[in-house]
Design a protein around this nucleic acid. Structure first.
Length: 259
DNA sequence: ACTAATGTTGTAGG
DNA sequence: GCCTACAACATTAG
């Protein structure tokens, strides 16, 4: 479900329910979502008070009076501030006021204590400056897999990479180092504008994504290439093409996006 | 039955 | 170290 805008929306919608709350009890029931010792993780959480909730890349970081809890939603994770446990509920936090549920049918998500993975993340796409962005682009890799690399930039996923490359007029197979300065400047701006607009729309709900209240986002209606294979390009009318790049479905306009 | 899905990680090879 | 392809994780929907 989750790329930067979706995770940001979840953080904003869950924060009021978590901040200042005390965790009375915790229970985790998936060896995939909570690898290692789920029981010990629960014990570490019980009795703790939540100081703040923030996002870093696609991670939800919950700062406690002692320690840090991180939640990554994987592909189908949902963090909900209401409802009852269901078939695929693998985490329950009982608060002094309220309950937080973690649902995840595919169990690709992760709930961890002070994860090392967060330290390896690249810069935030909404914070990096143009100069630094262009400097980091001087690499041999193809632009699409590079933008998906969380150590390069933290938070972009398949939808927003395709949308950003379309907006910048860059072919997904283009070599990053060969993108001209005006083009990379356009890409930098496109990423910022698209992520900002997506956050304002509450994210994109393709299949699973909802916020902490169970509300869907609406940015999917503004997608210009993602999920539009065979449909006319909104700029030139050429049918949108779908190929595979780095094992990921990749949508682009063959006329508007040149290598 | 088969394929693809908003993600990440580990391995192998160039 | 960088880059690429492939497999794996588990479930659902078309």
């Amino acid at each position: 479900m989750p790329e930067l805008p979706e995770v940001e929306t979840v953080v904003r919608s869950i924060a009021p329910h978590l901040t200042g709350r005390r965790i009375i009890a915790a229970k985790f029931t998936s060896k995939h979502v909570t690898p290692g010792n789920a029981r010990r993780l629960a014990e570490r959480l019980e009795g703790r008070t939540v100081e703040s909730v923030r996002r870093r890349g696609k991670f939800i970081l919950i700062k406690l009076d002692q320690g840090l809890l991180s939640i990554h939603l994987g592909m189908t994770g949902r963090l909900l501030a209401k409802g009852d446990p269901e078939e695929h509920t693998y985490g329950v936090l009982t608060l002094d006021d309220g309950v937080i549920l973690y649902n995840d049918p595919r169990q690709f998500g992760k709930i961890e204590w002070s994860p090392k993975r967060v330290e390896r993340l690249g810069p935030e796409p909404l914070e990096i400056g143009l100069e630094e962005f262009q400097k980091r682009l001087k690499r041999k890799a193809r632009i699409k897999p590079l933008l998906l690399n969380q150590a390069f930039l933290a938070g972009l996923g398949n939808i927003y990479v395709d949308e950003s490359l379309f907006a910048a007029g860059i072919h997904p197979l283009a070599s990053a180092s060969r993108i001209s300065a005006p083009r990379s400047a356009k890409l930098h701006q496109a990423i910022r504008e698209i992520l900002t607009a997506a956050i304002a729309s509450g994210g994109s709900s393709i299949s699973d994504y909802v916020d902490a209240q169970g509300q869907k986002g609406w940015f999917q209606v503004q997608h210009r290439v993602y999920g539009r294979e065979g449909e006319p390009c909104v700029i030139c009318g050429t049918p949108i093409v779908k190929i595979v790049v780095g094992q990921r479905g990749t949508h682009y306009c063959p006329k508007c996006q040149k290598k």
